[in-house]
């Protein structure tokens, strides 16, 4: 491979890595919105929380692999607790989006403060496990193993999610609930439990993303801010509740990021929001969205 081709291929894989990471965060957000109608402003905070859990588990056990399993589960549990004891109550009050908005913003602030109280304001570091360090060389292209691992991990999660959604009874209920919640409820299905499950899985996936991103980034209290906004764009443009939309738009934004930086670096950040404004102006519910609130 010539150096120039290698550069383009590398950029494409970078886009894929970031896109998949974004998908892990956005898919949870879109499922939660699509099914429960909740605009979860705390979603990225779960991402950050999981990165901190990861840091802590690594500090205790010295194993990234244990952290990869425990941290997302811990995050998912926190998510379940939040759903069971806070969100569910607020949903019952019937305030609509407005209540969720205030509540989830409140939760995001409390998580941020909790993280600072427990782990301090300084930044923490997580190392790539030794088995994933270094580069692989394929056809003259050097690429870090860890980034390939992120892509692989995300694909596994995507596969598992697709399997649950499209091949199981639970998945069928969830999909049905996305299009018509009341109807499903009328069929005598225990909706609160399904909601709890969806919220737990959504936060768990944000948690996986948090662990995967930790060795590439710095674990610090402001970690949640940026990826949260990007995930929001994905959900909005892809269409609320649409998993397919989340996949497509995440990957598109990932590649837009890579090649935008390669060719039009000055305009890259403007493009994202211009794109969002254009899509929404002409397709208000996003590319793959159906439901109108």
């Amino acid at each position: 491979m010539s150096p120039v081709t290698a550069m383009y291929v590398a950029q494409a894989i970078h886009g894929l890595t970031y896109g998949m990471l974004l998908f892990l965060v956005a898919s949870g957000l879109t499922l939660i919105f699509g099914m429960m109608g909740i605009l979860n402003l705390a979603h990225a905070s779960f991402f950050m929380l999981s990165a901190y859990f990861c840091y802590q588990v690594v500090a205790w056990t010295d194993s990234f692999w244990i952290a990869l399993i425990l941290a997302p589960i811990g995050t998912g549990l926190v998510g379940i607790i939040v759903e069971r004891f806070l969100l569910r109550k607020v949903q019952k009050l019937g305030l609509g989006h407005i209540g969720d908005l205030l509540l989830t913003l409140g939760i995001a602030l409390v998580i941020s403060e909790a993280v600072k109280t427990i782990w301090g304001t300084e930044s923490h570091q997580v190392l790539i496990p030794p088995s994933l360090q270094g580069l692989v060389t394929v056809a003259g292209l050097e690429y870090p193993i860890y980034r390939l691992f992120i892509i692989g991990l995300s694909l596994v999660i995507l596969g598992a999610l697709a399997f649950i959604l499209f091949k199981t009874r639970l998945g069928m209920i969830i999909r049905a609930a996305v299009s018509d919640r009341d109807m499903v409820s009328a069929l005598g299905i225990n909706m609160p439990r399904v909601f709890m499950f969806v919220f737990g899985v959504g936060t768990l996936m944000a948690g996986v993303a948090g662990v995967a991103a930790a060795p590439m980034l710095t674990v610090f209290p402001g970690l949640a801010d940026q990826i949260g906004l990007d995930a929001f764009v994905v959900v909005v443009v892809g269409g609320f509740g649409s998993l397919l939309g989340a996949v497509v738009v995440s990957l598109f934004l990932g590649e837009l990021n890579s090649f935008g930086i390669q060719f039009i670096p000055r305009l890259a950040p403007v493009l994202v929001f211009l794109f969002m404004a254009l899509v929404l102006s002409f397709k208000p519910m996003g590319f793959f969205g159906e439901r109108d609130e």
């Binding site: 890595t17 990471l21 940026q226 890579s258 930086i261």
Partner: peptide, 12 residues
């Protein structure tokens, strides 16, 4: 600010 992925810049 607070960028997540520096890979595209570094590759360039």
């Amino acid at each position: 600010l607070f960028a997540k992925d520096f890979a595209p810049y570094l590759t360039k």
